[in-house]
Every structure is written in structure tokens, then in C-alpha cells.
Amino acid sequence: MKRRGTIGEFEQLVLLAILQLKSEAYGPNISEELERKAGRRVSRGALYSSLDRLQQKGLLQWEIEVASSDRGGHPKRRFEVTQPGIAALREYRKALTKLWAGLEEVLG
């Protein structure tokens, strides 16, 4: 069960991937980015489900762009991380940093 204001590990990865992709954050790219940089293969179903959830939490938003020819006339969705999204990421990093402090010896 997730607690208030916190985000799950996978959600965090998705948000980071979107930030990395800047203005190129479309669905297929996010999936590719996750696989390439984080080694996470994820089905589209799971990915879209997470994206919808993050949007409902207000952590990201999207814009609909008009279709290009190789998409069978279907529109395109470009994702952006919102301010609360960035705040949540910062929060998470802060918690991690604190917890990591002094463990360099153990964790290397």
C-alpha cells in the first residue's frame, strides 16, 4: 500500500525517463529509455497503466499532438512531469540521500 505523497520505485523510474527525454517523451520512447538505461523491460499495458496513475496523482500531464502518417491517423501523446512530480522526485532523492549517508563503506 502506497502512502500519501510517496511514489513507487517504478513510478520514479518512469518520471525520470520522461525528464530525460525532454520534449521527446512519447510512449514508445519512454519504454525504450527504461529498457536502455534502467534495464527494465515493461509491457506497454503496464506502462500506460502507470502513466495514467501518475497523471491521476497529478505528478505528470500530457499533450495530445496530431497524427503522423505512419500511425494510421492516430494522435500522439507527449508526456511532461508536473511541478508536484518534480517535488515528489526531490523528496524521494532526499530520503535516499539521508539513508545512504555513511553507508559507503558497506555498499561501496
Partner: peptide, 16 residues
């Protein structure tokens, strides 16, 4: 809606 169609669009694009 646009969202639903965009999902199909993503899959179509990658499929091709």
C-alpha cells in the same frame, strides 16, 4: 478518446 487512440497509435507506429 484522444488518449485511447494515442495508445493504439503508439503501438501502430512501433509495429510498422
Amino acid at each position: 478518446d484522444a488518449v485511447g487512440r494515442s495508445v493504439i497509435g503508439d503501438l501502430t507506429e512501433e509495429h510498422s
